[in-house]
């Protein structure tokens, strides 16, 4: 009875997604990225592309929402919507004033963030932390939305940082949280291949793309990342490649194929250690006697 259908003589209704969709873009602005050290102007190009992409997202539907974060070496901050009151923007040219406001706010806040950067110490970007912040932001919007309103959320990470396993645990935590919340994580790698983030895309059902040419960044973003997850099935997009599922060991943070796994807490080590550093379980040292020993487990 519930599916009672009344024939309607309307034209085929293909526009199915009427829900609000929230996009959180995380831009890696860490000056220690290799491509930025080579040529600092690349950042301007990237930010311009990201702004145009973000505005295209807002252009899709009137009810679409946007947030942009800058991920730095020591901190991650929301640069749109900024922490302050929204700027009062008047139109200066033919651009839609909402888009102008987005552009102005992002550039203003990013400039402020970069100006505050003092230390010259080279550290890696805290991407896992930024994703965690984005997840919190989405959760808050979810919680405060009016009842009956449906929200599709996704996160897009745009980064030129290299792959590093030091945040392995944090990455895995955010990936599985996102998976549980039904939030898709997309990753756009600008410079190097990122195997850990690629795992995240695979886990959450997002897309991973290593941009072959930085020049055409905007076009890549628009082609691959603009379609929302529900519409992606209707388009032909880059097929998922084989994902490198290597884990990082807990002792040296290196990606390994084969290692030792603690039988109690499942921590992974690249070398045998008599005491598990995570749960302090004591193992017997595998001496010449230990022919039958099963302490050694092989992890693929």
């Amino acid at each position: 009875m519930n599916n009672l259908e009344i024939p309607a003589e309307t034209t085929p209704e293909f526009t199915s997604t009427s829900e609000t969709s929230l996009l959180v873009v995380i831009v890696d602005s860490n000056p220690s990225q290799k491509m930025l050290r080579d040529n600092p102007h690349v950042l301007t190009h990237c930010v311009d592309s990201v702004i145009a992409f973000a505005n295209s997202h807002l252009m899709q539907k009137a009810q679409n929402k946007l947030a942009v974060m800058a991920c730095h070496s020591k901190t991650s901050e929301f640069i749109y919507p900024g922490p302050n009151k929204p700027l009062d923007v008047r139109q200066i040219d033919g651009q839609y004033e909402v888009f102008t406001a987005v552009e102005k706010t992002i550039k203003h806040n990013l400039a402020k963030l970069l100006a505050n950067e003092k230390s010259t110490l080279v550290t890696e970007s805290l991407l896992a932390g930024a994703i965690a912040m984005a997840l919190c932001y989405i959760a808050r919007i979810q919680r405060t939305k009016p009842p009956g309103c449906r929200l599709n959320s996704r996160i897009l990470v745009v980064t030129g940082s290299g792959d590093s396993a030091s945040q392995y645990m944090n990455y895995m935590n955010v990936f599985f949280t996102a998976q549980k919340q039904g939030i898709v994580i997309d990753v756009c790698a600008l410079d190097q291949h990122l195997s850990l983030l690629q795992q995240g895309c695979d886990i959450t059902g997002g897309l991973y793309l290593k941009v072959p040419q930085l020049q055409g960044l905007l076009q890549y973003l628009l082609w691959v990342f603009l379609p929302e997850p529900p519409i992606r099935q209707k388009l032909v997009l880059p097929p998922p490649v084989k994902v490198d599922y290597r884990a990082a060991c807990f002792c040296h943070r290196e990606l390994i194929d084969i290692g030792y796994v603690c039988s109690v807490c499942l921590s992974i080590f690249c070398k045998f250690s008599p005491i598990c550093t995570t749960c302090h379980t004591v193992f017997k040292i595998p001496g010449p006697l230990a022919v039958k020993s099963k302490k050694k487990k092989i992890k693929l």
Binding site: S56, I92, G94, Q95, Y96, F99
Partner: peptide, 11 residues
Amino acid sequence: KLALLGGGKPW
């Protein structure tokens, strides 16, 4: 393009 990226005369 004008609406998206700017340029041209204001509304």
